[in-house]
């Protein structure tokens, strides 16, 4: 039995609309995240993914419900939950070291400057930026900036790492390398991660569990997909795995049509938002009889 680090309990987000009626982005959302788990959330724009992440970060408050981290309800942003922002959000007036040291210094207020810098430099070299410590963000490429963002978040040694489409602004090659780095670092430190993405392949490569959100408004978690691929998967081998297309097709099917029609799918059936179905799409052996080979 793994320990539950995060428990999202019945959260909702509603905005007042001009005509006096409230717009509900999502409601009655339940989700648990175990320690050391890498969870990705996938869904279309407008389903409230970023809001969920901001609530987890404490930057936004839910209209209803609570989020419990380590047996304590979230009351605001805290250093135990580090965020990697989509647009890296580095301070342009600080150097690479300055940006990371700012975070380290905020967490360890009693540390000396030398201690702070030493700790910061450890994480700068961890993301492969050794030698660029004294560069300003404007002198760095997009990939390097995001590496600094990752180093800044990791240097806090948080209980939970929150990533909001961290690689979406990068080109395909840089994205691949950074995914590798993040996966390597998170696996080696047993980091708990919650990540938002649009990219199905990114989710399959990185995540242990993939949370599927239906379209907003009134978005809900449709199901949680357990990644059938082995933990020691490699990027260049992943597509050869027998279950790869099963899980990929399942995700794409969901994004293309089921995210839209999911409400009809469950209409009239008993539905428990506290326990959404846990799905593990695996390849059906070709020897199986035809009727069993329904859409994965």
């Amino acid at each position: 039995m793994t320990e539950k680090l995060i428990s999202i309990e019945a959260i909702a987000k509603r905005y007042p609309a001009p005509n006096g009626v409230q717009t509900t982005v999502f409601e009655n959302l339940w989700l648990g995240i175990n320690r050391g788990e890498f969870v990705c959330m996938i869904g279309h724009s407008g389903c409230g993914k970023t809001t969920v992440l901001n609530i987890l970060a404490g930057l936004d408050a839910p209209s209803e419900g609570v989020v419990i981290v380590d047996n304590q309800a979230i009351e605001g942003p805290a250093l135990d939950r580090a965020v990697i922002f989509q647009g890296h959000a580095l301070f342009p007036w600080r150097t690479v070291l300055g940006n990371v040291a700012y975070a380290v210094g905020s967490k360890h207020k009693k540390w000396s400057k030398a201690q702070v810098n030493e700790h910061a430099e450890k994480f700068i070299s961890l993301v492969g930026l050794k030698g660029a410590e004294y560069k300003k963000p404007s002198e760095l490429s997009g990939g390097m900036k995001q590496r600094v963002g990752i180093a800044r978040a990791l240097s806090l040694e948080p209980k939970m790492l929150l990533m909001d489409e961290p690689f979406s602004a990068l080109d395909a090659l840089t994205r691949g390398t950074l995914q590798d780095e993040v996966r390597r670092i998170c696996l080696s430190t047993g980091q708990t991660v919650f990540m938002i993405t649009h990219d199905v392949d990114e989710a399959i490569y990185l995540a242990d569990k993939i949370v599927l959100m239906t379209n907003g408004p009134h978005a809900q978690i449709a199901e949680i997909v357990e990644n059938p691929l082995p933990k020691d998967r490699e990027r260049n081998q992943i597509h050869k795995h027998t279950d790869y297309y099963a899980v990929r097709n399942h995700l794409i099917d969901f994004l293309v049509s089921r995210s839209r029609t999911f409400k009809d799918e469950i209409a009239g059936k008993p539905w428990d938002p506290m326990n959404v179905p846990l799905v593990r799409p695996v390849a059906i052996p070709p020897s199986a009889p035809e009727p069993m080979r329904k859409r994965a």
């Binding site: 930057l59 805290a78 959000a89 301070f91 905020s106 806090l156």
Partner: peptide, 27 residues
């Protein structure tokens, strides 16, 4: 001042006074 920078300061639990001098003033 870009909201992202303020959010960074918030997630780092930087106090209002320090935030004014280290984030808002340079920005």
């Amino acid at each position: 001042v870009r909201k992202e920078w303020l959010n960074v300061a918030r997630t780092l639990e930087v106090g209002a006074f320090k935030r004014a001098f280290t984030v808002i003033l340079p920005a």
